[in-house]
Protein backbone atom coordinates (compact mmCIF):
# COMPACT_ATOMS: atom_id res chain seq x y z
CA UNK A 1 0.00 0.00 0.00
CA UNK A 2 1.38 3.40 -1.00
CA UNK A 3 1.87 6.36 1.33
CA UNK A 4 -0.99 8.34 -0.30
CA UNK A 5 -3.36 5.40 0.29
CA UNK A 6 -2.35 5.19 3.94
CA UNK A 7 -2.71 8.97 4.16
CA UNK A 8 -6.25 8.77 2.75
CA UNK A 9 -7.23 6.08 5.26
CA UNK A 10 -5.74 8.09 8.14
CA UNK A 11 -7.62 11.19 6.96
CA UNK A 12 -10.94 9.33 6.70
CA UNK A 13 -10.51 7.80 10.17
CA UNK A 14 -9.57 11.18 11.67
CA UNK A 15 -12.49 13.01 10.01
CA UNK A 16 -15.05 10.38 11.03
CA UNK A 17 -13.75 10.19 14.60
CA UNK A 18 -13.37 13.93 15.24
CA UNK A 19 -16.36 15.29 13.37
CA UNK A 20 -18.53 12.28 14.24
CA UNK A 21 -17.97 13.24 17.89
CA UNK A 22 -18.41 16.94 17.08
CA UNK A 23 -21.77 16.53 15.36
CA UNK A 24 -23.02 14.06 17.99
CA UNK A 25 -22.21 16.56 20.74
CA UNK A 26 -23.48 19.55 18.73
CA UNK A 27 -26.83 17.81 18.16
CA UNK A 28 -27.11 16.91 21.84
CA UNK A 29 -26.44 20.55 22.80
CA UNK A 30 -29.30 21.82 20.65
CA UNK A 31 -29.82 24.51 18.11
CA UNK A 32 -28.35 27.71 19.45
CA UNK A 33 -31.25 29.16 21.43
CA UNK A 34 -33.63 31.89 20.42
CA UNK A 35 -30.90 34.21 19.17
CA UNK A 36 -29.42 31.52 16.99
CA UNK A 37 -25.88 32.35 18.08
CA UNK A 38 -22.98 29.94 17.76
CA UNK A 39 -23.09 28.31 21.18
CA UNK A 40 -20.75 25.51 20.17
CA UNK A 41 -17.70 27.69 19.67
CA UNK A 42 -15.46 25.84 22.18
CA UNK A 43 -16.61 22.53 20.67
CA UNK A 44 -15.77 23.68 17.14
CA UNK A 45 -12.36 25.04 18.15
CA UNK A 46 -11.68 21.82 20.06
CA UNK A 47 -12.64 19.70 17.04
CA UNK A 48 -10.37 21.69 14.71
CA UNK A 49 -7.44 21.40 17.13
CA UNK A 50 -8.14 17.67 17.65
CA UNK A 51 -8.23 17.13 13.86
CA UNK A 52 -4.93 18.96 13.40
CA UNK A 53 -3.29 16.93 16.18
CA UNK A 54 -4.63 13.58 14.92
CA UNK A 55 -3.68 14.36 11.30
CA UNK A 56 -0.18 15.55 12.19
CA UNK A 57 0.37 12.59 14.52
CA UNK A 58 -0.90 9.93 12.12
CA UNK A 59 0.99 11.31 9.11
CA UNK A 60 4.14 11.77 11.17
CA UNK A 61 3.88 8.14 12.29
CA UNK A 62 3.28 6.92 8.72
CA UNK A 63 6.26 8.91 7.46
CA UNK A 64 8.47 7.59 10.28
CA UNK A 65 7.50 3.98 9.50
CA UNK A 66 8.31 4.33 5.77
CA UNK A 67 10.42 7.48 5.20
CA UNK A 68 11.23 6.68 1.57
CA UNK A 69 7.54 6.33 0.64
CA UNK A 70 6.58 9.66 2.22
CA UNK A 71 8.39 11.67 -0.46
CA UNK A 72 7.34 9.45 -3.36
CA UNK A 73 4.67 11.32 -5.32
CA UNK A 74 4.44 11.05 -9.08
CA UNK A 75 2.11 11.81 -12.01
CA UNK A 76 -0.36 9.04 -11.14
CA UNK A 77 -0.64 10.31 -7.56
CA UNK A 78 -1.23 13.85 -8.87
CA UNK A 79 -3.89 12.64 -11.31
CA UNK A 80 -5.67 10.61 -8.63
CA UNK A 81 -5.52 13.57 -6.22
CA UNK A 82 -7.01 15.81 -8.92
CA UNK A 83 -9.87 13.39 -9.61
CA UNK A 84 -10.56 12.99 -5.90
CA UNK A 85 -10.61 16.77 -5.53
CA UNK A 86 -13.06 17.00 -8.41
CA UNK A 87 -15.52 14.61 -6.71
CA UNK A 88 -15.01 16.41 -3.39
CA UNK A 89 -15.71 19.74 -5.09
CA UNK A 90 -19.03 18.45 -6.42
CA UNK A 91 -20.07 17.28 -2.94
CA UNK A 92 -19.04 20.65 -1.48
CA UNK A 93 -21.07 22.49 -4.12
CA UNK A 94 -24.19 20.48 -3.22
CA UNK A 95 -23.57 21.20 0.47
CA UNK A 96 -23.21 24.94 -0.14
CA UNK A 97 -26.48 24.94 -2.11
CA UNK A 98 -28.16 23.15 0.81
CA UNK A 99 -26.79 25.80 3.19
CA UNK A 100 -28.20 28.53 0.92
CA UNK A 101 -31.61 26.86 1.08
CA UNK A 102 -31.35 26.86 4.89
CA UNK A 103 -30.55 30.59 4.71
CA UNK A 104 -33.67 31.23 2.62
CA UNK A 105 -35.67 29.29 5.21
CA UNK A 106 -34.23 31.63 7.88
CA UNK A 107 -33.08 28.85 10.17
CA UNK A 108 -30.72 29.86 13.03
CA UNK A 109 -27.28 30.48 11.62
CA UNK A 110 -25.69 27.92 13.93
CA UNK A 111 -27.44 25.31 11.78
CA UNK A 112 -26.22 26.97 8.59
CA UNK A 113 -22.68 27.01 9.96
CA UNK A 114 -22.95 23.34 10.89
CA UNK A 115 -24.40 22.53 7.47
CA UNK A 116 -21.40 24.19 5.81
CA UNK A 117 -19.04 22.34 8.12
CA UNK A 118 -20.79 19.05 7.35
CA UNK A 119 -20.53 19.81 3.63
CA UNK A 120 -16.78 20.34 3.97
CA UNK A 121 -16.36 17.10 5.97
CA UNK A 122 -18.43 15.10 3.45
CA UNK A 123 -16.50 16.67 0.56
CA UNK A 124 -13.20 15.70 2.14
CA UNK A 125 -14.48 12.16 2.79
CA UNK A 126 -15.64 11.88 -0.83
CA UNK A 127 -12.25 13.14 -2.03
CA UNK A 128 -10.30 10.61 0.03
CA UNK A 129 -12.67 7.72 -0.69
CA UNK A 130 -12.40 8.43 -4.44
CA UNK A 131 -8.63 8.35 -4.19
CA UNK A 132 -8.74 4.98 -2.43
CA UNK A 133 -11.04 3.53 -5.10
CA UNK A 134 -8.81 4.83 -7.90
CA UNK A 135 -5.66 3.42 -6.28
CA UNK A 136 -7.37 0.01 -5.97
CA UNK A 137 -9.18 -0.11 -9.33
CA UNK A 138 -6.68 1.82 -11.40
CA UNK A 139 -6.77 5.43 -12.45
Amino acid sequence: MTFPEKSSIATIVALVAVFGAYFALALSLGGGGSGGGIVHKPLLVGAVIALAVVMAGSHGLLAALAPADADAFDERDRRIAWRGGHVGGLVLAVGVCAALVLTLLEVPYVHIANALLLAWVLAELADQATRLVLYRRGG
Binding site: T2, A72, D74, R76, G138, G139
Partner: peptide, 19 residues
Protein backbone atom coordinates in the same frame (compact mmCIF):
# COMPACT_ATOMS: atom_id res chain seq x y z
CA UNK B 1 12.04 6.20 -14.97
CA UNK B 2 11.33 8.44 -11.99
CA UNK B 3 7.98 7.07 -10.83
CA UNK B 4 6.95 4.99 -7.83
CA UNK B 5 7.06 1.20 -7.98
CA UNK B 6 3.28 1.18 -7.48
CA UNK B 7 2.76 3.40 -10.53
CA UNK B 8 5.04 1.24 -12.67
CA UNK B 9 3.13 -1.83 -11.48
CA UNK B 10 -0.16 -0.15 -12.45
CA UNK B 11 1.26 0.67 -15.91
CA UNK B 12 2.58 -2.89 -16.37
CA UNK B 13 -0.80 -4.39 -15.39
CA UNK B 14 -2.60 -2.05 -17.78
CA UNK B 15 -4.46 -0.29 -14.94
CA UNK B 16 -2.92 3.10 -15.70
CA UNK B 17 -1.94 4.76 -18.98
CA UNK B 18 1.26 6.74 -18.39
CA UNK B 19 1.95 10.21 -19.75
Amino acid sequence: VGVTRQTLNAVEQGKYSPS
